[in-house]
Amino acid sequence: MTLLLFLAQTIRIAIPYLFAAAGGALAERAGIVALSLEGYMLGGAFGAVIGAYYTGSAWIGVVTGVWWGIMLAAIHAVCTLRFKADQIVTGVAINLFTVGITRFLLQLAFDSSSNSPRVAGFGGDNIGGALALVSNPLVWLGLATMPALAFVVYRTTFGLRVRAVGEHPLAAASLGVPVNRVRWVAVLGSGALAALGGTYLALDQHQFTDSMTAGRGFIALAAVIFGRWDPVRAGLACLLFAGAETLQIRLQAAQLIPSQFVAMIPYVLTIVAVAGVVGRSVPPAALGRTTD
């Protein structure tokens, strides 16, 4: 029973990571640094709460959440693809902008600097644990995301082009592949996916709280790198990180290890991965490079 609970909690924690990491893998394979996952998630969470609050429907919340993610990603795309701005600077700007704009609108819409009122979510109120999990369609969607992304990246023409554009955009361009259009789709897709992660988070807690994503976008990015930019491996990394987090929560009562150390696990593992301890970790060659 404890194992089942452990598993349920791990999945619950992993879902936002899975969505965001899928977005990260998609963008980075196309050569765009996915530093703004955190912003997309936070924007998605806020958008979802707005939609759910004014319509009373969690599904509408999903739509508005994703729409927020796409809009933020569009800003990123315009800056980096249209105006060739630096991807890292733009990514950081998106994250900061999102923190500010959601805080501002939170105040404006709900007259609160900390949290929104309670909104609708998925699953009943009275069922907890594993049952709440299986009744939430976003959980199933989240679990399906990585295999689906793997299929897109490795089995479709779009995926082939994404990989080509992320490795050698000039070669792709010389063959008539519309490099910028492929990247636009990848960036908007990454915004939508990461926003789904934020949406899940907000609807699961039935409210938006200020800066509620709390660095999850960066953990997702760490999972992408730890998974060597492969969707399936990145998905497993998400589960691993979520498992570590669950462990930390379980162990907190026992006070065996300071929680800060467990919180470090994703980043430590990522550094280990990037340092090349677990096989070679080679990013897409054109990652972060601006091309004309």
Binding site: L160, R161, A164, H168, L170, A171, S174, P284, A285
Partner: peptide, 14 residues
């Protein structure tokens, strides 16, 4: 103008 991480066939048909 070749993408090193793709196969020969993938490069040709890209």
């Amino acid at each position: 103008m070749l993408v090193p991480t793709l196969t020969v066939a993938e490069n040709v048909v890209l």
